[in-house]
Amino acid sequence: MNQDVIDIRLLEAFAAVMSAGSITGAARLLGRSQPVVTRQIQDLEADVGYLLFTRNGPRISPTPKGVLFHAEVERLLMGLKHIRQRANAIGAGALPVLSLAAIPALAAGFVPAALAALERKLLPSQVHVQALSAENVVQSVLSQSVDFGLASLPIQHPGLDMQWVCEVPCVACLAMDHPLAKKKVIRLRDLAGVRLLTMANPYRLRRRVEEALEREGVVPAEVIDTNASLTAIAMAKQSLGIAVVEPVLTSSLPVEGVVTRPLDVSIPFLFAAIAPTGRELTPTVAALNDALRAAVALMPGAKLHSGAAALAEAGDETSEFEKAPS
């Protein structure tokens, strides 16, 4: 880069073009003229030293570097927005803005219930909830752009405090009229020769599912994977296969037309509540932490592990957790 600091107006122009898909649309969003936005994009490209968009007549498309850069810009602009809101709250003597990030299943499954359980006096007027991948939840907590996070394991970083870890067995989701829906327990061997609906990330739940299938000598006929368990459940509803997912959504937001059955083999799903190391929880975050812990404990088969046990066992997030005290 040619300068140490990039003009925030250039970043706003870039983010607007990415959102609108065109210079003209971005100009309308920003209330600026089209030539001004065009010039700002050109200035930003000169500043960072590479093209952010490819041009084909009036059409533009982000370059691969532009897509990567947009993720950083979006995080920065969101952080600046939160800083402004926090500054306003401090000036008004109001509760601090609450910002948290969680993987999609937990953001939809337990965060709303936990927020609803907070005393009115502890709920700020501004609350930000982001549904992100586990990796992005971790990065958001590390950068302290959020106050609190919920992410699936593995998580191992010295900059994080694990408040608690929840371990819960996965379940099978099937269409109500599926031949196996009449069974009270789905055997992993029942998955042989059928289409499996499962998670895509090979380093988290997907790995445990595949290891369990391999131990049982089960080979599904086909696989559809996705980055969200709700999508897998929705596909099960359409009789596309049997979904093996964590039970967060099936416990909190049951889907009509889908039945949930336990598996005969335990496939643990583990997730943790995390906060930045050395940062004391505010009364609101502490109350939210307690409400989340109480909510997740209601899942069938859920085991809660203390933060101390979580830190001690962070090197092996599967078998060793089964030995940890609740």
Rank of each mutant, 00 (worst) to 15 (best):
A221W: 06
P247H: 04
N289Y: 00
L311A: 15
A309T: 10
A291I: 08
A295S: 14
R39E: 01
A295T: 15
D147Q: 08
S125V: 08
S61C: 06
Q156M: 09
Q163K: 13
Q42G: 01
A302K: 05
P112C: 05
A46F: 02
K65V: 01
H305K: 10
R195S: 13
A192F: 00
S326L: 12
H157W: 00
A312F: 03
A92Y: 02
A105T: 14
R59L: 11
L100G: 10
L51R: 15
M299E: 06
E74W: 00
E167G: 06
H82S: 12
K323P: 00
G159A: 13
D290W: 00
S125E: 14
E119A: 13
A232Y: 14
L77Q: 08
A286Q: 12
D190F: 02
R39W: 01
P268G: 14
I8R: 13
M1W: 09
A295M: 09
A192N: 07
Q126Y: 08
I186G: 05
Q126V: 15
P247M: 04
E317K: 00
L68R: 13
V259P: 02
P96K: 05
F110V: 14
L51T: 10
V168G: 09
A212F: 09
A151I: 05
V218Y: 03
Q42T: 07
R293A: 09
N227S: 08
E12F: 02
Q238I: 00
C170M: 15
T260H: 01
E167F: 02
V259C: 10
H82W: 10
P96D: 03
R195F: 03
L174F: 06
P124H: 07
D7T: 04
A13K: 01
N201D: 11
L196S: 08
A302E: 04
T226E: 09
R204G: 01
L52P: 09
T198S: 15
A212D: 06
G79M: 05
Y50P: 01
S252V: 12
A26P: 06
P62K: 08
E211K: 09
P247A: 06
T260A: 05
A181E: 10
K237D: 12
G57E: 05
L122K: 11
P179T: 04
H305F: 12
I267D: 01
K182V: 15
C170Q: 11
A295G: 07
V129N: 04
D190M: 02
A172H: 10
K81T: 11
T318A: 06
P220H: 06
P169I: 07
L270S: 04
A243M: 06
E167S: 12
H82Y: 07
P268Y: 09
R32N: 04
L288E: 04
R86D: 14
Q144E: 14
S140P: 03
R204Y: 07
A116M: 06
S239D: 15
E167W: 02
Q3F: 06
L298F: 00
S145V: 15
L263E: 04
P158D: 13
L249Q: 02
D290N: 11
E45Y: 04
S19K: 13
A15F: 03
L298G: 07
K121H: 14
A275F: 01
L77M: 11
K182D: 12
L292T: 10
V17L: 06
E313W: 03
V5I: 15
H70T: 08
S61K: 13
A291K: 07
W164L: 12
V137Y: 05
L80R: 15
A286L: 13
V48Q: 11
A114C: 08
